[in-house]
Amino acid sequence: MKFDGTDFIFIGFAICLGALCYATTGAVALREALVQTMSLLLAILPQLAGGLLIGGLIKQLISKDKITALLGANSGMRGLFIATTAGSLTPGGPFMSFPIVFALWTAGAEAGALVAYVTAWALLGFVKLVVWELPLMGFEFAWIRFLVSLPLPIVAGVLARRLARMRAFQMKDHPGS
């Protein structure tokens, strides 16, 4: 196990809030918070482990090249659906998704597909769902949020296509051309 700066920020954060909690509500509340956190951790651990494993497996199956090849110059509604699916399957944070979006752009994908892809990654990201939302927010909440978000990347994609026709938003030719 290795410590880095981010760990210290989180440790410092916990200590500061713990001190504040002690100062405002006393030792009982402090103990209560510790017990609550322990039981929450124990409850989410199996799901977190499962989620991380799924994330690792998806990373093996999906590569930047594969997504780019799939989405290259696809257009029409079909392009938006493919972009939505690809986005929701893309694991990892923005350091993973935005380089893919850039690659898609240079591969000739149009604005609607790019926007649908980013929106799907943000709203429907499967790995984020199973690693974070499912354990912490519960199955029912995660399910409802996922369900209502399902059509939204398409909505954003269609809207982006309209906007991209306006002069102010006409994207300049991709950097690869």
């Binding site: 196990m1 290795k2 410590f3 981010t6 760990d7 989180f10 440790i11 954060f13 916990a14 809030l17 713990g18 504040l20 909690c21 405002t24 509500t25 509340a29 402090l30 209560e32 918070a33 510790l34 609550q36 956190t37 929450l40 951790l41 977190l48 482990a49 991380l52 494993l53 994330g55 690792g56 990373k59 093996q60």
Partner: peptide, 26 residues
Amino acid sequence: DALNTFKALAIRLPCALLAASFLVHF
């Protein structure tokens, strides 16, 4: 890969949850 992510979270996540749990009290 899963194990590496787990290691990265091993300290941060309990701290984040603990901080949130403290926060609830005030």
